[in-house]
Structures are given as structure tokens and as C-alpha cells.
Design a binder for these strands. Structure first.
Lengths: 235, 235
DNA sequence: GCAAAAGTGTTACCTATACACCCATGA
DNA sequence: TCATGGGTGTATAGGTAACACTTTTGC
């Protein structure tokens, strides 16, 4: 099934006011059959009108007058990808006067989507890109993605956020590969195991992933601990 | 000299659109003559109109159509306190539908001002409060200040931000007292000295602060290192 | 058996912390 | 000289990183 990604239309007010948009940098993981390590990918929308017609841009839309910021992020995320995020956090408010021909303040969120459901539907005008090698994007969106990547790499170091990219059950090697893809460096399997086991965030199951060499125990994410601190509104 | 703190008037558009405001949580330090340790203080503005008329609120104002976000924060900060900040960083964008009778998205910044210049002028309708014991504020401003305090305490742990509260030259004890006031706990003077000396952020001078017991060497902040990472726009 | 990944043990090193101790000044 | 803060030395504990080693599977 193919749907058309919704394209935001301008609000009814004129261009002499500041308009508020909400965009989201959506990260997921793709494991190519031949590839050794998974890669970080994100969905972009091809613009169908000026400015930057034809260029790729972050999914987003105008903030509705009766809509909370995070609701707008969830809504535009669902409209673009048909997915619901496992993690959603405000990134930054971009409001430079010259970032768009008309005055637009963009409240940007960033999100994680689990890999097992991240390719179930495809939408027109939407494509997934390798986060490490993006084309020139519309507006200041390259800068925004760069900052989101920086935040993700930072946060993976002191929170349990990597779980947000994995399916329900996973091996320690799979979890380590997520860290390696985000941080772009190898981690010692032995030390990684000890660190993550001592953090009380994993629940071992009695199942094993078999198929190659010695079977690896499957773990489940401990729902009792938050993935990460999501800001001032996460009480 | 006494000036009147400017009170923002509504933009010319109607109430059926989302308006963008910019507010700032401004931290400074006050050393009471009798007190042992300095306390963290912040300026608030008494509202002169509905909603929340008579209540204390964060300094701020409406975003001008041709004004960058950070410029608006600097402008309202200067209008309220007559000061320019030693540090200014975006905190968060607050946009819940019910946070104000009309729809307002507030881009909130937080700032540090040096103590030696933080009381040079006084403005009507402005008062400085102990950051640890605030009265009930207008809108969601108590929540906002709480988050700013959390961010300040966090950032003081991994950046050189405490220098932003001190004058040009200072002793290690004075710097330590800033940390103690922010973190609200005592720090070992010996270990504090070693940590800060090994971080390459201080330049020793040949001057000494005298007047009590053994004179203490004065240090200067090393301008080569940034106070802290200020976000995606600080290139 | 052999290769390779799963999983365990051991060690070196670095940093945070606690605290004993000496130094220099004002009163 | 004594009290007090400035400043140095040192021992300990906890955590990170490197890496040798054992276990268990597929082929």
C-alpha cells in the first residue's frame, strides 16, 4: 500500500506574522543483508512547492492553534511514516529571521523508531537516507540533523536510549551494534556486557538467538526504567 | 537612577493565531555581608495586566517579526535589568495549549550575569528573588525556573559555566563557593583546587586577595576555552 | 576439528574522594 | 601564639579499558 505523505498548507493568516512549525528528526536502524553493521537512517520528504521545491526536507507541518507541541510532532511523524515513535524529545527551537523567506519559528523534535516496524509502509515523496551522508536539504535542515545526531550520540552515553531502536527481544551483540552504529566505533564485547548487565535495565529471557555459532541469550528491556530524561514536561 | 521595566504589549494580530514570546531565566549571585555562602538569585517582573496581574513572572516579551530568538532574549534581558549576560543559552520551547488564556508559545532562554554588575541599577516592578525559594509565579514559570535550575546544576558539572557568575579576577575559594551555591553542597577545597587546576581553564595572576589570613592567589578565566556548549548555533 | 561468536576472569590505569598535614597571614 | 583559610601530599576505592581465556555452537 502506498499513501501520499501529507504536505502542510499555509495557515490562514498573512505573511506579516511569525508562524510556528513543528518538524522532527526521526532516527531508525537499517540492517542490510550484506552489511556487517547496521546503519542509522532517517526519513525525508520531498518538497512539492516553493521555497526549496524538489529539495528534501524534514517531515513536519504547521502547529495547529489547539495542538500541543509534542502532539504536533507525533501527528506529523505519523502522517509521514505511518509510525509511532518509541522515543520523542524536543531538540531545539530554530528561529533565525533569514532561515526562510517568510518568518517561521520551527520547534524541532527528534525521535527513535524501532527497526522492526520502520519499513512496513511506504509513502510517496518519502525516502530513507543514511544519516551519515545526506544530500543538501531545504532550509537549515542539514544543520538541524547534525545537531540531532550530536544529541543522539551524547545521550546514548548516559541513558538507555539505544533500546528505542531495537525490537522487543534482542541479544547483547545486537544492542552493542546499535551503540557502535551511533557512536561509529567498536566497543569491547566483554566490557559492554558487564556495563549493561550491571545497569539493571535488561531482563534476561530463557530464549536464545540461534543460527550461527554459539546461541546468544535474548534480553528484554526493563520497562521500570525510563529510556532517558525527556525534558521539563516529563514530570 | 530608577527606570520602569518595559511591559510587552500584544502584537497587532488577533487572538486566533499562535503568538511567540521569548522569556529568560536570569541567574546571578548575591553575597550578603553577614552570610557565609553566596546565594543564587534571579530577577522577576511584576505583571501590570491580565492574565496574572500582580503576579511575578519571568522577564520577556513578544518576538518581533524581524528579530532573532537570541536577540529577543538579549533585548528583554536588557530592558528588564539593564545588564548584558556573560552567558546565554536556549532552554526549552513551552507551548502547551492551556498554559495561557490565549495561545502562546514561549521560547525560554537562561542566562548568567556577573555578580559585580548585577545590582548597579534598579528598575520599577523588578525584584531579585532567592532562586531556591520563589513565590507562586504567573503561568508555568515555576516549572520553567525549576527546569533552568536543573540545567544549571547539570551544566556546572561538565563545563566552565560557573565562571560566568564571577568577576574578572577571583580566588579559588570564590570559584568553589559558586559551585557550592549552585550544587547546594560542600566541596573539598583540596580536591577542587586540583580538578580546576588540571583543566587548563584558569590563568594564575601575580595578584593576591588579602585581608583575612593567608592571602589567596587571584585567577583569571582563560578566554581560549568556551564557557559551555551553547547549542547548534554556536558553530 | 576448526572458526567464530558467547561469555568469564584478570590486570593496569585513571579519577574521585577522604583526610592528614604544612604554610602564611591577621589579630 | 593562635585561629583560620590557603595550599600540598597521599592512600584508598570504584570504574574503564585492554586482553587472555574458556565455552558452545555450525560447518
Amino acid at each position: 500500500m502506498t499513501r501520499t505523505a501529507s504536505v502542510a498548507s499555509s495557515p490562514t493568516v498573512g505573511t506579516d506574522v511569525t508562524r510556528v512549525a513543528v518538524s522532527t528528526v526521526i532516527f531508525s536502524l537499517r540492517r542490510e543483508p550484506g552489511e556487517v553493521r547496521p546503519t542509522l537512517v532517517l526519513p525525508l520528504v520531498k518538497r512539492t512547492r516553493d521555497p526549496y521545491e524538489g529539495a528534501w526536507a524534514l517531515p513536519g507541518g504547521w502547529l495547529d492553534i489547539a495542538e500541543n507541541l509534542e502532539s504536533a510532532a507525533s501527528r506529523t511523524l505519523a502522517e509521514t511514516t505511518g509510525l509511532s515513535p518509541s522515543y520523542l524529545e524536543q531538540l531545539y527551537a530554530f528561529g533565525a529571521v533569514d532561515r526562510s523567506p517568510s518568518r517561521v519559528v520551527s520547534i524541532v523534535y527528534w525521535a527513535l523508531v524501532r527497526e522492526d516496524i520502520s519499513r512496513t509502509e511506504s509513502f510517496e515523496n518519502v525516502a530513507w537516507f543514511d544519516a551519515a551522508s545526506l544530500p543538501p536539504l531545504a532550509f537549515d535542515h542539514n544543520q538541524i540533523v547534525g545537531y540531532a545526531l550530536w544529541r543522539l550520540r551524547n545521550k546514548v552515553g548516559y541513558s538507555q536510549i539505544a533500546h528505542g531502536l531495537l525490537a522487543d527481544e534482542f541479544t547483547l551483540a545486537e544492542l552493542r551494534e546499535v551503540y557502535e552504529a551511533i557512536l561509529d566505533r567498536r566497543l569491547d564485547p566483554a566490557n559492554f556486557r558487564r556495563q549493561v548487565e550491571s545497569s539493571d535495565t535488561l531482563l534476561p529471557t530463557e530464549s536464545f538467538r540461534t543460527g550461527s555459532h554459539r546461541p546468544a541469550r535474548l534480553y528484554r528491556y526493563n520497562q521500570d526504567v525510563e529510556l532517558a530524561d525527556r525534558g521539563p514536561l516529563a514530570h
